[in-house]
């Protein structure tokens, strides 16, 4: 008998009581948690920042203000210029990305998390390997809760996708919150008028 069969047989001897799967439709009526209506405040509470812009021109202008040109900037957002190509780069070279400007799929109101699927990442490592992360989202791509969030995409059609809520953080040293543990040290979300 293989280990697989042995384990499955042992599971059959289990005596967990039968319980029906609950009806999940109740979750559809749930709305954003108390005090979570201001997306900017929510994002700030997890260490990020949120800005609204009317056009890509305005976005470019703001980015120019935020980041010096000396940084390596990678962007796959239409109309936002890169000065860094990711083609044929080794992991060591990719670790030199200063700013990544990426399209996010949508944002979740209850926790400020931006969902980004692999097709929007450029390379899988870019959202975490960059020093500073900028995500650009069409203004109307907002859902209220995680229940709605999981209805926006099908895991089956995804290779890799992640919710990112604020910059990378740790509190492993005496419970003191520090940003920039391993992933991006800073996260700005731009909501753009389409």
């Amino acid at each position: 008998m293989t280990t697989r069969e042995k384990i499955l047989n042992r599971i059959k001897k289990g005596v967990a009581p039968n319980v029906d799967l609950p009806d999940m439709s109740i979750a559809e009526s749930w709305i954003t948690p108390i005090n979570h209506h201001d997306l900017k405040l929510v994002l700030e509470s997890v260490g990020g920042d949120l800005q609204y812009v009317d056009s890509v021109e305005e976005l470019n202008y703001k980015l120019g203000d935020m980041f010096p040109e000396s940084l390596n900037i990678y962007s796959n957002v239409k109309g936002v210029d890169s000065n860094f190509s990711i083609k044929n780069k080794t992991a060591i070279e990719l670790a030199n990305i200063g700013v990544a400007v990426l399209n996010g799929d949508f944002i979740v109101e209850e926790n400020g998390a931006v969902f980004i699927s692999d097709k929007n990442m450029g390379l899988d490592s870019i959202p975490t390997i960059t020093e500073y992360l900028v995500m650009v989202i069409p203004k109307n791509n907002i859902v209220k809760t995680m229940h709605q969030a999981y209805k926006q995409f099908n895991l089956r059609e995804l290779r890799y996708g992640t919710f990112i809520s604020g910059p990378s953080k740790t509190a492993d040293i005496e419970s003191t919150l520090v940003f920039g543990a391993h992933g991006a040290k800073n996260l700005t979300v731009f909501m753009v008028n389409e």
Binding site: M146, H147, Y160, F163, I164, A171
Partner: peptide, 25 residues
């Protein structure tokens, strides 16, 4: 996933979600 992801970080550290919630298919 919606149920568990909403509860895990809130109950663990008081965050509304962990910074990264990553799905690998």
């Amino acid at each position: 996933l919606g149920v568990f992801v909403r509860m895990l970080a809130r109950n663990a550290t008081g965050q509304p979600i962990t910074t990264y919630t990553s799905h690998f298919t």
